[in-house]
């Protein structure tokens, strides 16, 4: 192999993990404080980093939407305390998630988790009690076998690692539903009933009740998945020490 002296002095050319082109690192601001996700986001090329539609100022105080949110006004009973999302689910973000979730490009996992870290840091700014337990919305076992991973769980585990939380498997999925995106709002809420159950071992092994539980998922559309999971989680506790469940989602559509 010929020795390439030039390469010793040239800056290393790292490909952008999303678009694969040679990254021209941008100087634009990265809105995450933790050093690890910062480093991951700074490995993106300038145009990819610019295309992330951060939700910096959520208008809806409950679900963290960018615009005024009729859903949260209409909903009478809510099982989760509040939720925050990292980005708007625009076409670019759709592509990114599809690359990771459906095509299986697991290189993107760290990038998506780093994006989610933004929402986590925002949420800890709002909720002062802090969290100890982090968990994820489960997927059905057959889906898990096909895909090889649960995207929400992977993201949650990364956050747990970075921010010193305990990841616990608290929920499992009882049945496999059709794609959520093909259904109307009404049928989503009805269909969600009875999809999840609490994993008792996880709940009793730790003293969950003292702080809130953080629940991770990839997309928030109507909030029915999040609400159902929160209901199941809360109902597995006694009336007097039911913990608050907070939602943390990667994207808000």
């Amino acid at each position: 192999m010929p020795i390439n002296f030039r390469s010793w002095f040239a800056p290393s050319e790292a490909a952008c993990p999303v678009c694969g082109r040679n990254a021209v690192n941008s100087s634009s601001a990265i809105p995450v404080r933790h050093p690890t996700p910062r480093r991951i986001l700074s490995s993106l090329c300038a145009s990819c980093l610019r295309s992330i539609p951060w939700i910096v100022h959520p208008l809806c105080r409950i679900c963290g939407r960018m615009e005024r949110c009729e859903d949260c006004v209409r909903r009478k009973a809510r099982n989760y305390a509040l939720s925050r999302c990292a980005v708007r689910y625009d076409n670019t973000m759709k592509d990114w998630l599809a690359l990771y979730k459906y095509r299986g490009n697991e290189q993107l996992e760290s990038v998506l988790a780093a994006v989610l870290a933004f929402a986590y840091e925002r949420l800890t700014g709002t909720v002062t009690t802090g969290f100890q337990i982090i968990t994820a919305v489960p997927i059905a076992p057959e889906r898990m076998r096909d895909r090889g991973f649960n995207q929400a769980e992977r993201l949650a585990r990364r956050l747990a690692e970075w921010y010193g939380l305990d990841y616990e498997t608290l929920l499992f999925r009882l049945r496999h539903t059709e794609k959520q995106s093909l259904k109307s709002r009404r049928s989503r809420v009805v269909d969600m009933r009875g999809n999840f159950a609490a994993e008792s071992s996880g709940l009793f092994s730790t003293s969950v009740a003292s702080t809130g539980i953080l629940l991770i998922d990839d997309i928030y559309t109507t909030g029915s998945t999040l609400d159902e999971c929160a209901r199941v989680l809360r109902e597995s506790f006694h009336m007097e020490n039911r913990p608050d469940v907070y939602g943390l989602l990667w994207a808000r559509s």
Binding site: N105, E106, Q107, R147, G148, F149, N150
Partner: peptide
Amino acid sequence: LRRTHCAACGQACAYCEACLT
């Protein structure tokens, strides 16, 4: 090749990124 944990076989198993498309 990238090695990740795979739920289908329960191991850390490698996949090929070159022909992922």
